[in-house]
Amino acid sequence: MLIIARLPKKDRQNRLVQFLQENPFATDEDLAELFQVSIQTIRLDRLELGIPELRERIKSVAEKNLDPVKSLGIDEVIGDVVDLQLDVQAISVLEIKEEHVFARTQIARGHYIFAQANSLAVAVIDADVALTATARIRFVRPVRLGEKLVAKAVVRNRDGDECKVRVETKVQGELVFTATFRVVGMSNVSTRNI
Rank of each mutant, 00 (worst) to 15 (best):
Met1Phe: 13
Ile3Tyr: 12
Ile3Thr: 10
Ile4Gly: 09
Leu7Gly: 02
Pro8Phe: 08
Lys10His: 07
Asp11Phe: 04
Asn14Gly: 01
Leu20Ser: 03
Ala26Ile: 00
Thr27Ile: 00
Glu29Trp: 09
Glu29Lys: 15
Ala32Val: 02
Ser38Glu: 06
Ile39Arg: 15
Ile39Phe: 05
Gln40Ser: 15
Thr41Cys: 05
Leu44Arg: 14
Leu47Trp: 04
Leu47Met: 07
Glu48Gln: 14
Ile51Tyr: 10
Glu56Met: 08
Leu66Gly: 02
Asp67Pro: 04
Pro68Asp: 10
Val69Phe: 07
Gly73Leu: 02
Gly73Trp: 08
Ile74Leu: 13
Ile74Ala: 09
Ile74Asn: 00
Asp83Gly: 01
Asp83Tyr: 12
Val88Ala: 06
Ser92Thr: 06
Leu94Ser: 00
Glu95Leu: 04
Lys97Arg: 15
Lys97Cys: 03
Glu99Thr: 06
Ala103Asp: 10
Thr105Glu: 02
Ala108Glu: 00
Arg109Lys: 15
Gly110Trp: 08
Phe114Leu: 11
Ala117Trp: 04
Asn118Val: 01
Ser119Lys: 13
Ser119Trp: 11
Leu120Arg: 10
Ile125Thr: 03
Asp128Ser: 15
Thr132Ala: 13
Arg136Met: 04
Phe139Trp: 08
Val143Ile: 13
Val143Asp: 04
Gly146Phe: 10
Ala151Lys: 09
Ala151Pro: 06
Asn157Phe: 12
Asp159Lys: 11
Asp161Tyr: 04
Val165His: 08
Thr169Pro: 02
Glu174Phe: 01
Phe177Glu: 06
Ala179Asn: 03
Phe181Val: 00
Arg182Gly: 03
Val183Ile: 15
Ser187Arg: 14
Asn188Asp: 13
Thr191Leu: 14
Arg192Ala: 14
Asn193Tyr: 02
